[in-house]
Lab assay of single mutants.
Amino acid sequence: NQASVVANQLIPISTHLTLVMMRSEVVTPVGIPAEDIPRLVSMQVNRAVPLGTTLMPDMVKGYA
């Protein structure tokens, strides 16, 4: 099972991601792979992401 990136807190819209905001967890459905966490740092979310939500490629500007 592959770990995905999950929000560690509420991430407001247009926030630049930091390591503190993300954790890796095995979830269904599978989202952005956990090994991409370093790549996600300083990218922006294009919507509010609630605590515990799996980050999907379409939620992060410039990821997909």
Rank of each mutant, 00 (worst) to 15 (best):
Q9G: 05
I13L: 12
P33A: 14
A3V: 07
D36I: 07
A7Y: 02
Q9L: 13
M21A: 03
A7N: 01
M43S: 06
T53I: 10
I13P: 11
S4L: 01
V26S: 10
P29T: 05
P50L: 13
L40I: 09
L51I: 12
Q44E: 12
N1V: 15
V60R: 00
H16Y: 10
S14N: 15
V27P: 00
K61R: 15
V60F: 05
G31V: 03
A3K: 07
V20C: 13
I11G: 00
E35C: 14
N8W: 04
T15N: 04
N1C: 07
S42H: 12
M59D: 13
S14Y: 14
V5L: 03
L17E: 02
Q9C: 09
G52D: 12
H16N: 10
V60M: 04
Y63H: 04
A48V: 14
N8K: 09
V41R: 05
T18M: 13
G31N: 01
A34F: 08
P38V: 09
V27D: 02
M59S: 06
Y63G: 04
D58N: 14
P12E: 11
V45Q: 01
Y63C: 05
P57Q: 07
E25K: 06
R23H: 05
V6Q: 03
V27W: 03
V30I: 14
P12G: 08
E35D: 09
S14C: 09
S24T: 14
N8L: 04
M21Y: 05
E35M: 10
Q9P: 01
R23N: 06
E25R: 06
P12R: 08
H16V: 09
L17R: 00
A64C: 14
Q2P: 14
D58I: 09
N46C: 08
R23I: 08
G62H: 13
A7K: 02
Q44N: 04
V6R: 03
N46Q: 12
L40A: 00
V49I: 12
A7T: 10
S4A: 02
V60S: 02
I13R: 12
M59A: 09
I37W: 03
Y63W: 15
D58E: 12
Q9W: 08
L51M: 13
V20G: 13
A34L: 03
V49L: 08
K61Q: 15
N8Q: 11
P50Y: 13
H16L: 13
Q2D: 15
L55S: 01
L19R: 13
V20I: 12
N46Y: 09
V6S: 02
T54M: 03
L40R: 00
I13S: 14
Q44G: 03
L19I: 11
E25M: 11
R23L: 05
T28I: 10
P29A: 04
Q44W: 05
Q9N: 06
T53G: 11
V27R: 10
H16C: 14
G52S: 07
V27T: 13
M21W: 00
I37N: 00
A64K: 13
S24M: 08
S14A: 14
V5C: 06
Q2A: 14
S24I: 09
Q9V: 11
A64W: 05
H16W: 08
V41F: 04
R39Y: 11
L17C: 03
I13H: 14
Q2N: 14
Y63R: 04
T28P: 00
L55Q: 00
N46S: 14
V49M: 05
V49D: 03
M21L: 05
N8P: 01
G31Y: 02
V41G: 02
S42E: 08
A64H: 14
S14R: 11
D36T: 07
M56Q: 12
V26M: 13
E25F: 06
M59V: 08
L17H: 01
V26I: 14
V5E: 02
L55W: 01
A64L: 14
T53W: 11
L17Y: 00
G52P: 00
L10F: 13
S24E: 14
M43I: 04
P33I: 12
M21S: 03
R47A: 09
N8M: 06
V5G: 03
I37A: 07
L51N: 13
A3D: 10
L17F: 00
Q44Y: 08
M22D: 03
M59Y: 13
P50H: 08
Y63Q: 03
P38F: 10
T28M: 09
P57C: 09
P57S: 08
P57K: 06
T28K: 07
P38G: 12
Q9R: 09
A64D: 15
G31D: 02
V60W: 01
M56Y: 10
V6M: 04
R23P: 03
V5R: 01
P29R: 04
M22C: 03
V20M: 14
P38M: 09
A48M: 15
V45G: 03
V27F: 03
M56L: 11
R47D: 07
V49C: 07
S42W: 11
V45F: 00
P57F: 06
A34R: 05
Q44C: 11
L19V: 08
Q9H: 08
R47I: 11
L51F: 12
T28N: 11
V30E: 15
A48L: 14
E25P: 00
G31S: 02
R39H: 09
L55K: 01
V26Q: 11
H16S: 14
I32Q: 01
P29W: 04
E35K: 07
T53D: 14
E35P: 07
I11F: 01
P33E: 05
Q44V: 14
I32N: 01
P57R: 07
P33R: 09
